[in-house]
């Protein structure tokens, strides 16, 4: 049983054509998808953080505590198994590449608040094999904990370390259960959702509300009159790893 090279080339050529056809269709479908929501979108949630304000009250963890409480975020003692929605990261780690030998003393080793950036072009969404994470029309990168298969591909894709996996059962590690919000189970990924359940009720995210220094400002980028827009007009801000093209929507005032 032999097959001539010419036959092979023929078959290979056909397969190539078929593949090309499929990707074109895929691209077309995608273009349609993107066009649809743009028409009605009037909201683009974002956050502006003022790290200097945040540093005013030393050791303050009010925002973290508030978030952990309303979302039943478990407390794992083992650093390897930690589940974090919002937390503080030393400046050098939060803004890798931004440090220099003379990094302003105001920033060096100073903790910076970090959480999900709700990217405009989120790599985690791109890689998820089940659409368990996706970008909503209002820009929130949402999680469906009912669908997540726990493959952790999104964690590999996230360049900000914003996603946590439940390596063990989180229930026994939740300091005070709040029945209003479901917990998660072992084997699913979780992260900040910009408090979408509070936004639905017209409330601000828990961290924003809890901050005594008003260092976090949340709002709608599509509204030119919003506070976030005026802050962005008045201050120079940076974002984490902008060179990766993820378009993070958390802005830090410098």
């Amino acid at each position: 049983m032999t097959i001539h090279r010419r036959t092979f080339l023929g078959v290979a050529g056909l397969s190539a054509v078929a593949l090309a056809g499929k990707s074109t269709i895929g691209a077309l479908a995608k273009a349609g998808e993107e066009a649809a929501p743009a028409a009605g979108a009037a909201t683009r949630w974002a956050m502006v953080i003022d790290p200097q304000r945040c540093l005013r009250k030393e050791g303050c963890k009010d925002c973290i505590g508030a978030c952990d409480k309303v979302h039943n975020v478990p407390l794992f003692k083992d650093k390897d198994h930690e589940v974090k929605w919002i937390w503080k990261e030393p400046f050098e780690n939060a803004f890798t590449g931004e440090e220099n030998p003379y990094t302003a003393e105001a920033l060096k080793d100073k903790p910076v608040l970090v959480f999900c950036n709700h990217c405009d072009n989120p790599p985690c969404v791109r890689v998820c094999p089940t659409k368990a994470t996706w970008k909503r029309e209002d820009g929130i990168v949402m999680m469906d904990w009912h669908r997540c298969i726990g493959c952790r591909y999104c964690m590999a894709a996230c360049p900000y370390g914003s996603r946590s996996f439940n390596w063990l059962d989180p229930r026994p590690r939740i300091p005070a259960l709040d029945p209003e919000f479901p917990t998660r189970t072992k084997g699913v990924v979780e992260k900040c959702t910009f408090c979408e359940e509070r936004l639905a009720k017209g409330e601000q995210p828990a961290c924003v509300e809890a901050c005594p220094e008003k260092a976090l400002v949340f709002g709608n980028l599509d509204d030119p009159a919003s506070e976030v827009r005026s802050l962005l007009r008045e201050h120079f801000t940076i974002r984490r790893k902008p060179e990766l093209g993820t378009q993070p929507e958390i802005y830090y005032i410098v």
Partner: peptide, 13 residues
Amino acid sequence: WDCHIDPKLVQRS
């Protein structure tokens, strides 16, 4: 109920 919570259980605990 692995995730969703029965408020009664929380009160009791």
